[in-house]
Amino acid sequence: MKEISVEELKQKIDNKEDFQLIDVRETFEYDTSNLNGENIPLGGILIEVDKIATDKPVIMQCRSGKRSAAAVMQLEQLHGFTNLYNLKGGILAWQAAFDPGMPVY
């Protein structure tokens, strides 16, 4: 599984690179704090597979990186995706590195 660090993600955002960010946490978690990605909870990721880009990098994120890793594995194994990256450490790592005031749980 390919992974990306929060520093690499920030660089992509700062450089205005073309990628899709998908947050696989539940809606109430997303509403607490998010990185402006698209919210597709893990439980519905296979149902909403048509919302996931195949023509550019897709970064999956969650709270700590575990659920997003599960999403990447499911999508790679069941749908043959090759453009997926897991955000190491999830939103907790982002908060620690860039936004200490961000509410997390």
Rank of each mutant, 00 (worst) to 15 (best):
L75R: 07
G89E: 09
D55G: 01
A69S: 10
K16G: 12
W94M: 04
A70Q: 15
A97G: 03
V104W: 05
A70G: 13
P41S: 04
E26R: 00
I13N: 00
G89D: 03
G65R: 10
S33D: 04
L35C: 03
C62T: 02
L92Q: 14
I40F: 09
I45K: 08
D99T: 04
A97R: 11
E48G: 11
A96L: 02
L84H: 02
G89P: 09
N36C: 09
Q74D: 11
L35W: 04
I13V: 10
G89S: 05
Q20W: 03
N36L: 13
Q11S: 14
K2I: 08
V58T: 14
K66L: 13
L78F: 14
Q20P: 04
S68V: 00
A96R: 12
A53P: 09
P103K: 05
C62R: 00
Q20M: 10
C62L: 05
S68E: 07
V58K: 12
G43D: 11
A69D: 08
E48M: 15
K2S: 12
D14P: 01
G37N: 10
I13T: 06
Q74Y: 15
Q74G: 00
F98S: 02
E8N: 01
Q61N: 14
K10Q: 15
D50L: 11
N36I: 00
D50G: 11
F28P: 05
A93E: 04
L9W: 01
N39Q: 10
I91L: 15
P103V: 03
I91M: 10
Q95P: 08
G37W: 11
A70F: 11
G89N: 02
Q95S: 11
M73S: 14
S5R: 00
N34Y: 05
K51S: 11
A71K: 01
Q77F: 13
D14V: 10
L21T: 06
N39V: 06
Q95G: 04
L75A: 03
V49R: 15
W94S: 07
E7F: 12
F19A: 08
P103T: 04
G90C: 06
Y85H: 10
K88T: 15
S5T: 14
D99M: 08
R63Y: 13
I45P: 07
D18G: 06
G65D: 00
G43W: 05
D14F: 07
A96D: 12
S64L: 13
I22Y: 04
E29P: 07
D99R: 09
